Amino acid sequence: MSPSAVPAAHGSTWSTIAPAEAGFDEAKLAAAVAFAQAHESPWPKSLFYPDGSYVGNREWNESGPWTEIVGPVRERGGPAGLVLKGRRIVAEWGDTTRTDMTFSIAKSYLSVLAGLAVQDGLIADLDEPVGHSLPGPFFASTHNAKITWRHLLQQSSEWQGEIFDKSDQVDHNRQVGPSADNSRKGQKRQLHAPGSFYEYNDVRVNLLGWCLLQRFRKPLPEVLRERIMDPIGASSEWEWQGYENSFVEIDGQRMQSVPGGGHWGGGLFIGARDHARFGLLMARGGEWGGRSLLSADWIAQMVAPSPTLANYGFLWWLNRGPTARPALPASAYWALGAGTNIILVDPENDLVAVLRWIDGASFDAFLGHLYGAMA
């Protein structure tokens, strides 16, 4: 395919490639797909357990005053996904157009929006305190005044406060991953200096979304649609929903600030095929059909290891550090959402893979099957 060739717009036929032509063993690739289909997320389809508790509250051992679900929640679909090799589909399974919740994959979309803000000059310097361009109560304290855009993007801000009735304390002592211990989650701890301590969280990422909204001065879903999703031929079905209490007024207009996940409902509702286009844009250095949509320099910064966590960049997970998957090159990275939902980007192998609703404990085994199928 020519360098400028891209998948046709949503609704048209997306070119496929035979496994052997793409460098895969056909039987082994089929086994990888069968594995993903057979190892479905244990989450209930309704996203609520029989006792009425939300999957997020159960997943993160959440209780106390910040558990209220304030955004929309929709029943999920079954296992789905696709594998792209050289822009073409080499494997696909399940309903890849269904607009399911995608949880923290939305964080990686926020990272791309931050890159657009940098391109547009709306963020002059990542190491400038956010409060310099966004005066107001969120960055008024001595502690919060030191927080930079880089800190927010690397989840090391240690911001203290409350936004949309959710306190930063809700994610104190939070852990993620198969062996996560969230027995002390929500217990208040001593804060560190901004930029010196990593802790995965949602409240502070929601703050980043609010900050970007203030800089663009238009709803982030509109920015994403106009600058990224429409140009890459994504569907018109995806949505980015906020909370019932996340509306703000900017320049006399009422707008909804959107979250970086579905922790309390809301977030990005999107299909696997649209995710695949987004991942392909990242793999191609921000270019689509010969047009630069996102700076390649931003993508390089986005996937550079953070000083406080070697396998984390700007809201993307990296194949670095002690948790690196040996089957993948060090340059591979992924967006990850609870449930488990994944956009894997591997520029070195010209590969993008999207997984919807696989059991998180089976992700590494799937990668073994997938990469084991490559000649």
Rank of each mutant, 00 (worst) to 15 (best):
G94F: 02
M374I: 00
L191K: 11
L29C: 05
A330Y: 06
G262R: 09
F314E: 14
E199P: 00
G271S: 09
F197K: 14
G321T: 05
Q301D: 14
Q154P: 09
N61H: 10
S157A: 12
A18T: 06
A193S: 05
L134Y: 01
S362M: 07
L153K: 14
A283I: 07
W159L: 03
Q187W: 02
S15D: 15
N144Q: 08
F197Y: 15
D350Q: 14
N319K: 10
S53M: 00
G290K: 09
K85L: 00
G262W: 03
G261Y: 02
P135V: 11
K45N: 08
W240G: 00
M229A: 12
G23T: 12
L280G: 06
G265R: 03
L122S: 03
I69G: 01
P221K: 14
G313I: 02
E62L: 13
L309H: 13
V203M: 11
N61S: 13
C211Y: 13
F164S: 07
I270G: 03
E62N: 06
L224A: 07
R150C: 03
H132M: 08
S41H: 00
L110H: 00
W264T: 05
P129K: 12
W238C: 10
D350I: 07
Q119I: 00
A36N: 07
R58N: 05
S108R: 01
V203P: 12
L208Y: 12
S306F: 04
Y312D: 10
A338P: 01
H275W: 11
S63W: 10
A338E: 13
H192A: 15
A310H: 12
D181F: 13
D181Q: 11
L212W: 09
S2V: 15
E226T: 04
W14R: 01
T96F: 08
R291H: 02
R217S: 09
P231Q: 05
K107P: 13
G161N: 07
R74N: 09
E59S: 08
L113V: 14
P44D: 07
G242M: 03
W210T: 02
G242E: 00
R227K: 12
E199T: 02
